[in-house]
Design a protein around this nucleic acid. Sequence first.
DNA 1: AATCGGCTCAACCGCTATTGT
DNA 2: GACAATAGCGGTTGAGCCGAT
Length: 260
Amino acid sequence: MGRSPCCDKVGLKKGPWTPEEDQKLLAYIEQHGRGSWRSLPAKAGLQRCGKSCRLRWTNYLRPDIKRGKFSLQEEQTIIQLHALLGNRWSAIATHLPKRTDNEIKNYWNTHLRKRLAKMGIDPITHKPKNDALLSTNDAQSKNAANLSHMAQWESARLEAEARLVRESKIRSHSIQHQQPNPPGFALESPTSTLTVSENAHPIITRIGVSPMPMIELVGTTSGSCETAGIVKEEGDQEWKELGSSNNLADYKEGLGSSLS
DNA sequence: AATCGGCTCAACCGCTATTGT
DNA sequence: GACAATAGCGGTTGAGCCGAT
């Protein structure tokens, strides 16, 4: 794996961006799109490395960024997702579409982590720091167990989603050329559309306990990552259980208490 | 008014993952 | 398959701000 020489190159500027630099970067991207970050600085007339340009764009200049104070709902979402995902800021950011991973990371480190610590909650494990309390408190114990189950589920979801995206890329290429109306169907999610082939039984789990934004566990029985579990397919009114996880009932039952 | 210390957040650094040749 | 180039991620840093003294 090669390492990009980046800003070590002589003559490249570092440090805070000036309004003129921002303007140049914005103007270039508006006109030409993102393209290759490597070649962008020279084309845009910037004395910056591509990495610096990318960071400036994704964390500050992008037009779809919401800036300013985090709402209570956003805070709760971050805490809940951090309990599920740990320090996977980019994954957390996908559930807060207008916030950047850097902003969420900063907010966690400067506000939320300290607040949890003050409340006597370990910001890493999201468990009460006092283990004695835990052992005498069934609800807390159950909640911690549920979070652990949820973490496993979310990991499985991420794997499945990555795989499906890869598959759908390959499939969409062949579909474009061979099948105007392909069998199978598309799954719409807040962040992406996934195409599932007809021979793959879909597993779509939507966890949407207010104010938690909707999270979907998506998998297929045809893949290596069989995330069978609670299923609610398009049009269904009721949750259905698939698979054999012993923890499903606890997990499902715990959703209300741990997420609401 | 000056100084100090804590806080915030934009930006950088070093690394891994992915993609291309 | 090996290697290089590039993109992206998470941890860390440091300049600037602000309140306390």
